[in-house]
């Protein structure tokens, strides 16, 4: 059996400790060890963005990060976005714009949109499409997703 390492990291502001094998990705650790199943596996090789999380302030595919690499780092996931009594504005915009159908890509898109708006609060439609190109959606045709992100940007402008 593979040896496990002890890792201490911060997830959604809380200090978290876990044991994991070197070969376990951050996505596997989040889902299987910590039961944070909001990040989804769509392709497991960085091509769909369903597992997007924010690592030390930067958007990453959690399937392409090893769990052991997160020692001492800070991870933000979809579960940490909403306040206890209210949704994040991006979450509201997705609901109001009907920007989801099956919903499997939604957590990844929302994390990706959050990272975008933090680095560029006022993106053009093209900038939004460029930034979100790493997130695949097969249901919506992206129309309403792009509009939802534009709405959030407009509201904060």
């Amino acid at each position: 059996m593979a040896r496990k390492s002890h890792v201490q990291t911060t997830i959604n502001g809380e200090t978290v400790e876990f044991l994991c094998e070197s070969r376990q990705s951050l996505l596997e650790v989040l889902r299987d060890e910590l039961h944070l199943t909001g990040a989804k596996e769509g392709c497991n090789n960085g091509n769909c963005g369903a597992c997007s999380v924010i690592l030390d302030g930067r958007l990453v595919n959690s399937c392409l990060v090893l769990g052991v690499e997160t020692e001492g780092k800070s991870v933000e996931t979809i579960e940490g976005l909403a306040e206890p009594d209210q949704l994040h504005p991006i979450q509201n915009a997705f609901l109001e714009n009907a920007a989801l159908q099956c919903g499997i890509c939604t957590p990844g898109f929302i994390m990706s949109a959050k990272a975008l708006l933090e680095s560029n609060p006022n993106p053009t439609e093209h900038e939004i499409r460029y930034w979100l190109a790493g997130n695949l959606c097969r249901c919506t045709g992206y129309d309403k997703i792009v509009k939802a992100v534009m709405d959030v940007a407009k509201a904060s402008a």
């Binding site: 960085g46 963005g49 997007s52 690592l55 930067r58 958007l59 990453v60 595919n61 392409l64 990060v65 990706s112 990272a115 975008l116 460029y130 930034w131 979100l132 190109a133 790493g134 997130n135």
Partner: peptide, 9 residues
């Protein structure tokens, strides 16, 4: 290279 998330790593 890749998408934005890939460029983060």
């Amino acid at each position: 290279i890749g998408g934005t998330a890939i460029q983060g790593r």
